[in-house]
Design a protein around this nucleic acid. Structure first.
Lengths: 260, 260
DNA sequence: GGATAGATTTCACTATGCGAAATCATGTGC
DNA sequence: GCACATGATTTCGCATAGTGAAATCTATCC
């Protein structure tokens, strides 16, 4: 359109109406109480009818709310998305320095995973500066029953949930060491949970061994899993203590209090 | 443009690109780990180049972030706006039921205010179902020195701040009862703060009397003010206890812990 | 080096978003 | 109750911002 509005000329993202919507949200955020259309148009340099239309679209999408006096305030969608972001940012941001420290300490790959249905998803990693190390792509997945933290997550969800999982997935073998018999898997999950860590003895991949622990949040629920993966010949059980302590520390940072 | 994309046909706010941007944010939010462009385009039914361009605009405005693998996640702007909203929503949402209960109990108008510079701003109200009651428009303002909660807020900010306020505003008289002499104002603020409530004895408006208390947050700072306003002939000092208790309760809900 | 898949950019085209103007709604003063 | 002022909402002709097919680029795998 034919204008040279007094919009912030440094902001031009390539889609004008998104820039304008962002400016309106910022203007609303500057006020602790709901703001009139006239003021928002003035603060953003937009034509009143343009501001009105963009605000109507933001209302429909719940980024903005309008009160009975036709004043605008930020909408609940921002809180929802913000909370979602906050939830996701917490564990990864908190974990990263600890993972790097463990990586330097052990000299092996440290992974952070979350459960998503029947899989663990790798959401963060710290890889050592050595030619041969276990490589896991962020975003990639593995079935619960073949990973150390996955067995802990299964264990945390209870025996019935393990049975249901087994029924859904049929416990496919990934190596000759994968637990494919339900009683064996149940026992392994139970024992792992009881002692606070789990091992993956070449169950997902031959020659790769892992040690995993859980990270819990303030509600006591499992938030994520932390693990060290190494070529099996290099894996050392003495790492268990440091890894368990790391999991405990992260859980505490997330507000988890172990039953005393 | 010439398409009948499989977008959610119930969502049509009047600005297509805002609807599309919202759909992309929702799609990203459904994934705990960063998502590829291809998946986001598929989930939203958008052309890949369209999705790419909208995401680029959202990145520029910090609603989205892109990692090194060209995967997208929610951006910090959402957290910033969400936190801002959360801060604002807390006290009003928490206060509303308590205000309604006080209104029913006293039969008079209950106001919630916040400080904004040299004014209090009315951000919530509960008005009684009687023909004559004190009316205050949400969003309207009053100078600090003529309101009950304003004097408490001045008191909470210290004597130097009261002096500065007096210098800036010159303490204009609103009625013959307004404190216009600085020593009197300082004494009134100090006394009010000490006893935990303040009175407005027809200082803002003839025939109108108020009782006000402060609401504090988890940092101990003043978050808002709560007051009951009535025609002076109907005001009763026995309401002080219930109002003070309401302020205390709201402060506790916001995480305030009084020094013991 | 070639194949493949996904990301990014280009560009002709037009539907969407724009803003001036008209209309509506509300509050105030007399 | 009416007139006026102000702010919000809607309309509609217009033109450009946003679109999507196609081209190009980049990364990965064999």
């Amino acid at each position: 359109m034919h204008q040279d509005t007094p919009e912030d000329s440094t902001r031009h993202s390539g889609i004008q109406v998104i820039d304008r919507a962002a400016a309106l949200l910022d203007a609303i955020a500057r006020y602790p109480e709901p703001v009139s259309l006239k003021i928002l148009a003035a603060e953003t340099g937009l034509n009143v009818s343009t501001a009105h239309r963009i605000l109507a679209a933001l209302i429909q999408n719940q980024f903005v709310e309008k009160d009975a006096a036709s004043h605008y305030r930020l909408g609940r969608r921002l809180l929802q998305l913000g909370v979602r972001l906050h939830g996701n940012i917490d564990v990864r941001a908190l974990a990263r320095p600890i993972m790097e420290s463990l990586r330097d300490h052990f000299g092996e790959t440290i992974n952070l995973t979350i459960r998503e249905g029947d899989s663990v998803v790798y959401i963060e990693k710290a890889t050592p500066n050595r030619m041969i190390h276990v490589q896991q792509l962020i975003g990639s997945r593995a079935p619960l029953h073949v990973t150390a933290v996955g067995k802990l997550m299964l264990g945390a969800s209870g025996e019935d949930a393990i049975r249901a999982y087994a029924q859904r997935t049929n416990l496919p073998a990934y190596t000759r060491n994968t637990f494919t018999a339900l009683p064996d898997l149940i026992a392994a999950c139970r024992e792992s949970l009881a002692r606070g860590y789990a091992l993956d003895d070449e169950e997902a991949e031959i020659d790769v061994g892992c040690i995993g622990v859980l990270i819990r949040d303030s509600t006591g629920n499992v938030s994520a899993g932390l693990s060290v993966s190494a070529p099996i010949a290099r894996r050392r059980l003495e790492w268990i203590e440091a890894l368990t302590e790391a999991g405990r520390s992260l859980s505490a940072q997330l507000g988890y209090r172990a039953n005393a």
